[in-house]
C-alpha cells in the first residue's frame, strides 16, 4: 500500500481538485439524499427517521403515476425520433456537398442552446395561440389551436423541441460515418448494390456502436429533462399535469412543498430506473451492436 502511494502520489496530486469535487459535490450530497429519502424532512427542521414511509407513499400517489406516464411518453418518442432525425441529417451532410461546414454548424446550433431558458421561451412564442405556427396555419386558412395550453397537445410540443435539438448526436454520427471504410462501398457497388442496400447493409451495421452510444446518452438525457417543461408550463407542469415531467414533480415536492424527504426518494427511484433501463440497453447490445474487430 505504502509503495503504491509512493509510486502514484503525483497522479493523486493532479487528481486532487477533481476528487474533492467528486466527493464534495457528488458523493456526499448523493449519500445525504439517500438518507433523507428515509426521513420526513421539510428543510427547516431536522429530519425525522421514517423508514420506508416515503417509498410506500410514492406508490399510492396518483401524481407520481401521471408524471411517470408523461416522462415515459417523452422518452419513448423523443429519443428514437431524435436519433433517426440526427442520422438522416448526418447521412445527407456526409455526401460531400458544398459548404458542408456551414450546414454542420447551422444544424448544430440548436443543441448548443439545448435545455436553455431562452429556447423554451421561444417555444412558447412559436406554439402560442397567437404564435408563429398558428400564423402560418392561418395563411392556409386553418384556424389555430392552443398547442401549449391544451392538455392533449402540450407534451408533443416539448417532444418536437427535443427532436429539434438533434445536433449533438448528429455530429457524433457524422464522425462515425467518416470511419466506415470506403472500400466496403466500392465492393458493394461492383456487386451491384443500390444506395438503399448500401445504407441498410453497410452504413447501419457499421454504425451500430455509435447508435448504441447515442442511444444511451439520449435516454439518460431525456429522463432528466427539466428546463423545457419548467419554463413552458411556468413551473406548474400544467395544463392538467400534461407536462409534469418526473423531474419537475420532484422539484415541486422538494422546493415548493418542502417535502424534501419525499423528493429524495423520488430522485433515488429515478436513479434506479435510469440504471435499469441503461442496463437493459447494454444487455440487448450484444444482439445488435457489431464491432469490426
Amino acid at each position: 500500500m505504502k509503495s503504491a502511494w509512493k509510486r502514484n502520489w503525483v497522479g493523486f496530486f493532479f487528481l486532487g481538485p477533481w476528487l474533492i469535487g467528486l466527493i464534495g459535490f457528488t458523493t456526499i450530497p448523493m449519500l445525504t439524499s439517500l438518507y433523507f429519502s428515509f426521513t420526513k424532512y421539510d428543510m427547516f427542521t431536522p429530519p425525522n427517521w421514517a423508514g420506508l414511509a416515503n417509498y410506500i407513499e410514492i406508490f399510492h400517489d396518483p401524481k407520481f403515476y401521471s408524471s411517470v406516464k408523461v416522462t415515459a411518453i417523452y422518452v419513448l418518442l423523443s429519443v428514437p425520433l431524435q436519433l433517426i432525425f440526427a442520422l438522416l441529417v448526418a447521412v445527407l451532410l456526409n455526401r460531400g456537398i458544398r459548404a458542408v461546414r456551414l450546414y454542420r454548424a447551422a444544424y448544430y446550433v440548436p443543441s448548443l442552446f439545448g435545455g436553455s431558458v431562452a429556447v423554451a421561451l421561444l417555444w412558447r412564442q412559436v406554439f402560442d395561440s397567437e404564435g408563429l405556427l398558428n400564423s402560418v396555419l392561418g395563411v392556409f386558412g386553418i384556424s389555430g389551436h392552443n398547442w401549449i395550453s391544451t392538455p392533449s397537445t402540450s407534451i408533443y410540443t416539448l417532444i418536437i423541441l427535443a427532436i429539434w435539438q438533434f445536433g449533438a448526436p448528429m455530429v457524433i454520427f457524422l464522425a462515425g460515418l467518416k470511419q466506415i471504410p470506403v472500400d466496403l462501398y466500392e465492393a458493394a457497388r461492383i456487386d451491384g448494390a443500390n444506395k438503399f442496400q448500401q445504407f441498410f447493409k453497410i452504413t447501419l451495421p457499421m454504425l451500430t456502436p455509435i447508435i448504441f452510444f447515442n442511444l444511451i446518452m439520449e435516454i439518460i438525457h431525456a429522463f432528466q429533462a427539466f428546463t423545457p417543461a419548467y419554463i413552458v408550463s411556468g413551473g406548474t407542469g400544467g395544463p392538467l399535469d400534461s407536462t409534469l415531467f418526473y423531474t419537475l414533480y420532484l422539484y415541486q415536492k422538494g422546493f415548493t412543498e418542502f417535502h424534501m424527504g419525499y423528493a429524495s426518494a423520488l430522485a433515488w427511484l429515478l436513479l434506479v430506473t435510469i440504471a435499469i433501463v441503461t442496463g437493459l440497453v447494454f444487455a440487448s447490445s450484444k444482439k445488435w451492436v457489431f464491432y469490426q474487430e
Binding site: D128, S129, I148
Partner: peptide, 10 residues
C-alpha cells in the same frame, strides 16, 4: 375557455 386561461396564467 380553459386553454386560453392556461396560456395567460403566467
Amino acid at each position: 375557455d380553459a386553454a386560453t386561461v392556461n396560456e395567460y396564467a403566467n
